[in-house]
Amino acid sequence: MIEIKELHKYFGALHVLKGIDLNVKKGEVLSIIGASGSGKSTLLYCINGLEPIQQGEVKVDGVSVHAKDTDLNKLRTKMGMVFQQWNSFPHLSALENVALAPRIVKGKSKAESREIARAQLEHVGLSDKIDVYPSALSGGQQQRLAIARALAMEPEYMLFDEATSALDPELVGEVLDTMRLLAEEGMTMICVTHEMGFARDVSDRVAYFHQGVMEEIGPPEQIFGKPESAHTAKFLANVR
């Protein structure tokens, strides 16, 4: 379970997150929508400990992410993260991209980590690209490679930071399909997304962020059907 309490985050004088309270249960799929600059991505970075926070607390399975004595590297292996820019490691083949972290972080043997990598590449539909280098993969394939790379650490949570925003329109579908597959398998997911169709169809709950505040959260029927907040309604009217 991910628990966020009274979270405040500043970039210098800029107040990016203004007191976020949010719990995500095991097995839940949460989509976060909202305009650019509303703090959605920053929230993911705070959950993964990639950004320090100024006030409040983030707990993952009861462990405080920002506490000084937390082994953040170990905690991060519980959370897979997929970024807008997929950031495949260009000097490694697809298989090596996925096998690297299990080997050096978890200390698995070379053979074992390659086996894990092979299984995860098959999982995301890249079995035929095992020895290919990222430069020869399309954006959609690289993003699926990034998903496989995160899954290879056997995370209990997956954080998606606008995973499809940097893709050409015709490549968005294959990445969303992979994300759907994970949701069906019961993975706990927090997806910052601009894909309203995905948010509506796949999520258990949808949160709308507005200027650093979680304006509204609820089941997709509520958010997309009859939003309680005027801001939510206005945002959705604009993106449709």
Partner: peptide, 13 residues
């Protein structure tokens, strides 16, 4: 920074 974050997010030191 994005490439470094990708490494750190996998649990690498």
């Amino acid at each position: 920074a994005p490439m470094r974050r990708a490494g750190r997010s996998l649990g690498m030191s």
